[in-house]
Design a protein around this nucleic acid. Structure first.
Length: 537
RNA sequence: GGGCCCGUAGCUCAGUCUGGCUAGAGCACCGGCCUUUUAAGCCGGGUGUCGCGGGUUCAAAUCCCGUCGGGCCCGCCA
């Protein structure tokens, strides 16, 4: 049997070769199709970090499919979750909805049927662009409403004592009396987090609606005292048992989970035990992964570093994010906009290896690189792009017109007619990246000429003086300026390199910079004239 | 108290799972070339106690044990 090098293939093998349940001595049942679940809580921000779960689940789907199995990828909107904070852009008066299921809250923007729907529908549409497998979507709210979970609620309630026994083994303080794994929605105010169950008796939960404190906001309870029937009334299972019920309901064989679930006391293992011992369904094969970091920080709305899927698609294709996530599973993936060009280079390198255009040290590494590239594709594998992203950014920063871009690329040898679309697409990705995320390379003009004065040679000073006169005498376009620079350098017999360097030195303080004519033309003319005169004096 | 990840060139990392050529890449850096692509290109240069200490082995960056440093995480939430 061939060695399995790629993590998704090894997960696939684990899924198909396991024989026994994890906690009990029972045989794994037959599955006519293998279902992998991915989901997202709607109370949070749907950024690209959430795609990690989905993309990785998709990779395992692909691996299984290629191994000859029928697969299904499902995405579940955890929309019975209560709203726990007021996100940016949402009116402060929505504070009254804190604690209410996101599906019961009106859309603050008024364009969808609910708060949840407003976030779910665009997100669900965009995630399909990042995966190869067709995703089937579900809503927990609908699941509960249509009674698909009633059976599991019943099972768990009937085995209440065993459930409590399991839960207790995972906690320091035992479960208080009157505990119910089912939490009702308050029949009076419609909130779900505020209903405190006081007792569970003869198939009914007795609750009172009390304040619940989230990190920042408090869900106000209405004080209502009520009785709910878990099999009839609206409500949901607690997280520790709901997950188990979800696995059983969709016959999930594998699901992704953040690395925080690896710890022995986490909800993953509690749910697994409940699923196996109470619901008779085997623990899925976990796909634990590290979280995405951006600039070494967690991605969060409060830090203002959130990247949405559509932001990503403006600067890079979906394949690139797939590649990023597929590279490694258990390794902190830190991303920053600054390193996007490097990610592109890495991707291009894998493409060249995939198409046999580049050699790699070991056979092992070669296989791994090919598999990684292949699984990161959406349909047919993209041919290696001859245009490095950093160069694309440079070209985009100087030229706007298609013809200018092509002629520049022809001269630099990055152009292939048969790949024109792919190449130009990259220039446009690079343009957005350059304009939105790379202000730091857009140059910092030095404030004080004295920083670099010593570095200027006699001939450079002469050159700058002449250039200053020319600039002040007439208002020229970037192209004309570029031409003048050559002419002046020739006239004064200053080597071109020295001439260009002197321009960058007195502006950016560095020996290099963007195409000089365009660059100077883009700066305030008065400033340029003053600076050149200063340099020459 | 416990778990996971990381520690390899100046920087960012690959290579570790599955031990095997002289430990690699990109960037940066140094030297050279380029009179109309000066954030570009071409040629040449590797700058290293693979965190540290043991062990296993013919062979260790890779496996095992220990240790130090950094990051993240262990709920009555989901």
């Amino acid at each position: 049997m061939e060695d399995v090098l790629f993590w998704a293939d090894s997960k696939a093998r684990k899924i198909t070769e396991r024989e026994k349940f994890h906690y009990i001595d029972k045989d794994i049942p037959e599955f006519d199709k293998l279902t992998i679940k991915t989901s997202a809580s709607i109370s949070g921000v749907l950024h690209i970090g959430r795609l990690s779960d989905t993309i990785r689940a998709d990779s395992v789907c692909i691996a299984l499919q290629e191994a000859g199995y029928d697969v299904e990828l499902i995405w579940v909107a955890e929309d019975m979750d209560p709203l726990r904070k007021i996100p940016e852009g949402v009116p402060q008066k929505f504070e009254e909805y804190i604690g209410m299921p996101v599906t019961s809250i009106p859309d603050p923007w008024g364009c969808h049927s609910s708060y949840a729907e407003h976030h779910v529908s665009p997100y669900f549409e965009v995630i399909q662009e990042f995966v190869r497998t067709d995703i089937k979507g579900y809503s927990m709210r609908e699941e509960y409403t249509s009674g698909n979970f009633t059976h599991y609620i019943k099972e768990i309630l009937e085995n209440q004592n065993q459930a409590i026994e399991i839960l207790n083994r995972y906690r320091q303080k035992p479960i208080p009396q009157g505990y119910s794994p089912f939490v009702p929605i308050c029949e009076n105010c419609g909130k779900i987090i505020t209903t405190r169950v006081d007792k569970y008796e003869e198939g009914k939960v007795y609750y009172s609606c009390q304040d619940y404190k989230f990190e920042k906001y408090t869900a106000k309870g209405c004080g209502h005292i009520g009785i709910a029937d878990p099999l009839k009334d609206m409500g949901k299972l607690m997280w520790k048992s709901e997950w188990a019920a979800q696995w059983a309901r969709w016959r999930v064989v594998s699901e992704g989970a953040g690395k925080e679930y690896i710890v022995p006391m986490s909800a993953w293992w509690v749910n697994s035990e409940i699923a196996e011992k109470i619901l008779g369904f085997p623990m899925p094969v976990p796909i634990f992964y590290e979280h995405l970091m951006i600039n070494g920080e967690k991605m969060s709305a409060s830090l203002g570093n959130v990247v949405y899927p559509k932001d990503w698609l403006e600067v890079a294709p979906a394949q690139l994010l797939r590649f990023f996530y597929n590279k490694k599973l258990m390794k902190t993936r830190s991303f920053s906009w600054q390193e996007l060009p490097r990610l592109y280079d890495d991707y291009d390198n894998h493409a060249r290896v995939y198409f046999d255009l580049e050699k790699v040290g070991s056979e092992k590494e070669l296989k791994h690189m090919r598999r990684l590239y292949e699984i990161s594709q959406l349909d047919t594998a993209e041919k290696p792009n001859p245009l490095p992203f950093s160069h694309a950014a440079m070209v985009a920063s100087v030229y706007k017109e298609k013809d200018d871009i092509i002629s520049s690329l022809e001269k630099s040898g990055h152009y292939r007619e048969e790949m024109e679309e792919y190449i130009l697409r990259r220039v446009e990705y690079a343009r957005v990246w350059f304009e939105k995320y790379a202000p730091e390379i857009k140059s910092f003009l030095i404030d004080d000429l004295n920083e670099v004065r010593e570095k200027l040679s006699e001939e450079q000073i002469r050159f700058l003086g002449k250039l200053g006169k020319v600039v002040s005498s007439s208002d020229m376009s970037g192209e004309e300026l570029q031409q003048k620079i050559y002419e002046i350098a020739q006239e004064l017999e200053v080597p071109l390199k020295a001439a260009f360097q002197s321009i960058y030195l007195v502006t950016l303080g560095k020996a290099y910079g963007p195409k000089a004519g365009m660059f100077l033309a883009s700066l305030p003319r008065k400033w340029v004239i003053k600076r050149l005169e200063e340099a020459a004096s």
